[in-house]
């Protein structure tokens, strides 16, 4: 192939001509060929399709199928076993007239709002403190995050012990001579949620701090330089520049924390068992479990879990719209 460039310049220049001539014939021809090629195509990457079976089954059977199944059976009067005897919205009417459910919902709202506000604001403030190029950052982070590695059961039991009126904080302060001191949140229906909140924050703020810190570190260093050149105070830079830039991090954190709060179960079981007074710290997840697996009233359990799903959707849909729907328009 050494020389003879002249010869090469004479080679067929087919592009234009073939396009003009080939038209209908080539279409027919290629279709005929594809008849033999097409069945192969279904079998192409067969291994990949086989490998995806667990995922496909999980999504279709468990996530989609299971959810639809529960929603459908929430309109039946299933008791010990699921059965398809329709009762319309009966279960929901019963649910919303059940004082235990109402307490659960109120508790969840109260606990949820406070815990969202506190985990996110405290988590962000801690992240800002950690972002000041401090020494021993790893040590501080390790200490703040370790509760997140623990089970809610462990968290609940530890705080149950620390808040024990006889031996815990109340007992100690009284022992110092302040006899009238009272700090017994877990045995008072009015304050039990604050007791849960203390434990919940202990477990969760470190996690939020880490997310926020990652968000802060993700901000371009040049933004800080620009703010310094413009002479903007550090706190003002955080407030006016950084927080708005971290909007996506805040939203994602909000969604994750909120979805976790709705599932709240283990912590309550361990720390208060739903008490005091029987149901002062009840939460919806507990209601579902008790009706499904203890009271043998499946219909109520299904209706209650459907309501939980609904509340997640209320959180999730606006977020999904902002995250994914917004992009299409903007």
């Amino acid at each position: 192939m050494g020389g003879d460039p002249e010869n090469r310049t004479l080679k067929l220049l087919k592009v234009g001509a073939a396009r003009d001539l080939g038209g209908p014939f080539s279409a027919l021809y290629s279709r005929g060929e594809r008849m033999s090629g097409q069945p192969k195509r279904l079998l192409r990457n067969l291994n990949a399709k086989i490998a995806a079976i667990p995922m496909v089954l999980t999504t279709l059977v468990v996530f989609v199928g299971g959810t639809i199944w529960t929603v459908v059976y929430s309109f039946t009067d299933s008791k010990l076993l699921p059965r398809l005897r329709w009762v319309g919205f009966d279960q929901y009417e019963r649910l919303w007239s059940n004082s235990r459910w109402m307490v659960s919902i109120e508790n969840l709202m109260f606990f949820g709002v406070l815990s969202l506000v506190f985990t996110i604001s405290v988590g962000f403030l801690l992240a800002v403190l950690m972002d000041q190029k401090i020494r021993y950052e790893d040590t501080f982070r390790t200490i703040m995050l370790y509760p997140f590695a623990l089970s809610f059961i462990v968290t609940g039991l530890v705080w149950q012990w620390i808040l024990n009126p006889q031996f815990g904080i109340e007992g100690i302060v009284r022992g110092w001579g302040w006899e009238s001191f009272s700090f017994d949140p877990l045995n008072n229906p009015q304050t039990v949620l604050y007791g849960l909140l203390i434990a919940g924050l202990w477990q969760g703020t470190g996690f939020v701090m880490c997310l926020m810190l990652a968000g802060l570190r993700g901000i371009d260093e040049d933004i800080w330089k620009a703010a310094r050149v413009d002479g903007i105070a550090t706190w003002k830079t955080y407030l006016v520049v950084i927080v708005p830039m971290m909007r996506p991090v805040f939203i994602t954190t909000l969604v994750i924390v909120a979805a976790g709060i709705i599932k709240l179960y283990d912590l309550v079981v361990a720390q208060t068992s739903g008490g005091p007074g029987g149901n002062a710290s009840q939460v919806p997840a507990m209601y579902v479990y008790d009706y499904m697996f203890q009271a043998q009233n499946l219909g109520q359990g299904f209706a209650a879990s459907t309501m939980m799903l609904l509340s997640v959707l209320i959180v999730l849909i606006p977020w999904a719209y902002l995250e994914f729907g917004g992009k299409k328009h903007g």
């Binding site: 995806a52 995922m55 496909v56 999980t58 999504t59 279709l60 468990v62 996530f63 989609v64 199928g65 299971g66 959810t67 199944w69 529960t70 929603v71 059976y73 699921p82 969604v255 979805a259 709705i262 599932k263 919806p284 997840a285 579902v288 479990y289 499904m292 499946l298 359990g301 299904f302 209650a304 879990s305 459907t306 939980m308 799903l309 997640v312 999730l316 999904a320």
Partner: peptide, 21 residues
Amino acid sequence: VFFTILIFGSFIPYQVMLYPI
């Protein structure tokens, strides 16, 4: 599509899928 369902599925409260499972 399956991946999207999977991710959104992680937000579904477990309680909804407890009994079908």
